[in-house]
Structures are given as C-alpha cells and as structure tokens.
Design a protein around this nucleic acid. Sequence first.
RNA 1: GGGUCGUUAGCUCAGUCGGUAGAGCACCGGCCUUUUAAGCCGGGGGCCGCAGGUUCGAUUCCUGCACGACCCA
Length: 489
Amino acid sequence: MPEQDLILARREKLARLRERGIDPYPYTFSRTHTAQELREAFRGLPPAQHTGVEVAVAGRILAFRRMGRAAFADLHDRSGKIQVFAAPQTLGAEGYEFWLDVLDLGDWVGVQGEVFTTKTGELSVAAQEIVILAKSLRPLPEKWHGLRDVETRYRERALDFLTNPKAREILIARAKILRTIRNHLDARGFIEVETPILQPLPGGASARPFITHHNELDRDLYLRIAPELYLKRLLVGGLEKVYEIGRNFRNEGISSEHNPEFTALEAYEAYTDYQGMMELAEGLIEACVLAVAGTSRLEYQGRWIEFSRPWRRVPLLELVAETSGCDVEKPLPELVEDLERRGIPIPEHLKRGPRGKVIEHLLEICAEKTLWNPTFVLDYPLDISPLAKRKRDRPDLTERFELFIAGKEVANAFSELNDPEEQRSRFMAQEKLRAQGDEEAQRVDEDFLRDLELGMPPAGGIGIGIDRLIMILTDAPSIREVLAFPLLR
RNA sequence: GGGUCGUUAGCUCAGUCGGUAGAGCACCGGCCUUUUAAGCCGGGGGCCGCAGGUUCGAUUCCUGCACGACCCA
C-alpha cells in the first residue's frame, strides 16, 4: 500500500481518538515499573498465576496478536519488553473494541492493570486502563527483519534506533566508554576543560577547516580542527594536567572511518613525554576494553584483538623499511625511484616532498592495515610533525607516536615542543609548504607563540579518535554506526 | 579518481533469456478468549532509482546520471 494511504489510515484513527475527547498527545504518565523492573520483581512466578498486584507500564507497541475476544501486545520501553493482555472483562466490551480499533504498531501507550502469568508462563499485565501517550502516524519496518537498508538506516536514524536494538546498544556503549575515559583521567588528577570551537585561526593539526562568519565582528572564524594549541596555553597557565573531549571539524571526505565532525580526546600532562603518553594510552584504552568486554581481549569484525600490556612499539622508519623493502633513509628522489621500481607508485603531489609525507604515505599503504593488535608506531619525521619535540638522538625525527588498532589510526601523541623559537621556525616551514600549495599546512599562530614565550613546562600530549575507538570496542564496521546522526551526502 | 555489485509495494526480498510484476510482514474486511514472527479466509496496494537510446513493445538490453555497498588508489 502506498505510504500515504497507510499514514491516512492512522490519521483517521487519530481523529477517532479526538472525537472521543481523548488527547492523543497528553503531557505525563505515572508508571510504576519498567519492563525490566517488572521482570525482576516477579521472577520465577509460575504459569497461570494471578498476583493481585496492580502496576502501570508505558512504552511503544511493537507487536499485536489479536484473537477475537482477547488480544496481546508487546510493549517496549528502554529496559526491554513486557506483554500486555487485553480482554473485554477488564476493559469493558466497548472499550476493548475501541482500543483495538484505534491503536497501531508504533503507538506509545500507558497501561494500568494486574500482573499475571499466562498459561505459557509469559509475564503480562492485564489491561484495566489504556492511555494513549503519543499516536504514531507512520508505518514501521517489517517486524522480523527490521530496517536493513543501510542508507535508510543512516538517513532515518530515529527509525533505525527504534527498530534495531543493536543500534541503540552502540550509543549506550558509547556513553559508557566516555564515562570510563573521564573517570580514568579524573582519577589521575586531570582537569576537564572546554576551549573554543570557533577559532580565529585553525591550528593544532594538518587539515582543511570549515569557515564561518561572525556578523557583528564582520570577521571570518573557523570551526576548530583540533583544540591542541589552546590546551597547551592552559599548560602555560599552570593547569599541569588538562583534557578536553569534544567535536573537531575537518573539511574532508566522508568514508567508513571519516566523518567531517568527529569526537576527539586531547590530554596534556606536564613533566612527562611521549613515553608517558604511551602508558597513559595503554591504561586508558585498557580500562575502556574492560568496561565493555570484561576482559582485555575482544573480537572486531571476526578477528580477536589482544589488549594485554605492554603493547608493541615499533619505530616508523623500521616498520616502513620492512614492509616496503626499501632503504627509506635515502634522499627523496632516489627513494621514489626505488619504490616505483618495486611497484609502489607515489602520487605526483608527494614526489616533491617533504619526504616525511612519502614515509607517511608508505605507512598508510604498506603497513597500516597489518597493525591489528595495538601498536605504537614511533618517531615521525620532523617535517610532518611541526608541534613535536625533536627526538633526542635523531634531530631529523620527532618524539611522536601514532597508535594503531585493527588497522586504524586511533591516537597521535608527542613530547610537546615548548621552545618558542623553534616552534616559530617550524611554523615558518609550514607556511612555506602552504605557499607551495599545501592547503593542509599549519599556520603561524602568534597568540600561541606569545604564550609559549611565557614558558610551557615540558609535557606529553595525546589525541585519541574517540569514534574510531568506539568502533573497535563495539565491533562497528563503519564510523556511521557509532554516530547518532552521521553526515550523509 | 578507478573497478565490481546494487536500487522492484511502507518494510524484507523473489522475478521477468524483452510482451507493463510476485511472496512474506504491515494495512483493510471476516472468523477466533492464552498468543509469542499466533492461525485461517478474503481484499486493496507498484512512474520496477532518474534521463536518454535500441525495439512493434523496455522494469528487463545499451549509454549517461543520482544514491548506496564493497574493493583499489
């Protein structure tokens, strides 16, 4: 039947409710039990028992079984489902006919009546009174298969959540993971802060920003691509251990691992370095794994991930040399030639350098997908790490790591660069790349440099992609599964 | 950006080697007082993604486009 006709039929029922003086969208309902509370309170009640206990339950009707002079409905609330039994004896002959006539699948109702078990043992409420709490005007997906079509699932998320318990469970797990992260950091003396999302200059990452405009100031502002520079300024301000969990915005493509707005954790801790950040990451993520799985291993897309510590640590250059089979310390033109001889093509725009980008590219195409158990990849080239301190014995590298789990980049961390003069020259090098057409190159942030000149204590800092972490912890194949409302084309 | 596959009723899916389409659920009507995807009988419901082309005739074949999934870059 055309959707419009199905909607029309429901509107007619809505009209019938109103004709009877019933408000189909009332204000409140006092329930005594959730479905789960009822199950717990009457656990073990044998079949065909009457209790004499009156309760009031509420929820959405997701199934009807009508059999003439009696009917059953499944009432779903957040905690689960409870069966409602309706018959003329308790509702009155006229009331019974009326409610059977005007209720549809999807309607929200409140039901008051006696708790009993049917002869098959199903805990039920025998309706003495039915209240409509909200009339549903649109038809629901098929009860057995539910809503499968992924495009509709993402475009009509409310319908997806009401149909697919798994979709709701991911959001619940998400809340649990975020709570675990906050508890873990709070317990270690970190202060949760909030820094600007609207920024005069986008900084702290290599990415293209979204641009917006402030009318009163008549000035363009950017949605942040990272909170990094502001959080470091709080280290200058003496906060010592800070973190922020919030949304970043990057004007980039959409894929199963990218959404233009995504949630990141950034944490900064004075008096430590990237080694300290590895320990922090291990402890934090292990706590999350324990919270959702109860053990330190879990299955992602059919493969087990082992989270027991310590995690593998491998220098980036070593990893890339191993997987590409090339001497990656060679000068750039020779390296590119060598790679192409081995059938590893390098995109044109990377051939001019900086060489760090070629190394990073090799990591992405040769190694990333093989890093299944948590792996810290260490010591990134200086030219692609403008905010990280130089590695102590290798001035062309930095003390920086990325963490990979299940082939996904989950975290990025440094020994934070706190020498204001070197920071300025790193920014200048980035500006040069920008002038050569690299739109992702970072910009000179004078406000940040001024604060660095006040003195920032030595510190380690880390950024963790929360959505990807949640994907791994909830066995979600796409970032869209872990976002309440993913951006679609 | 390239390749492969997909788009048919509100939902889940069949199908047409080219002759304007089916099922189950949902919906509507009837029977049914203990069901659990209830059951039985009957009914209505479709621009077969969009636009061109080939053809007497296209949902089916061809081309392009849109959207999606997966793989590759």
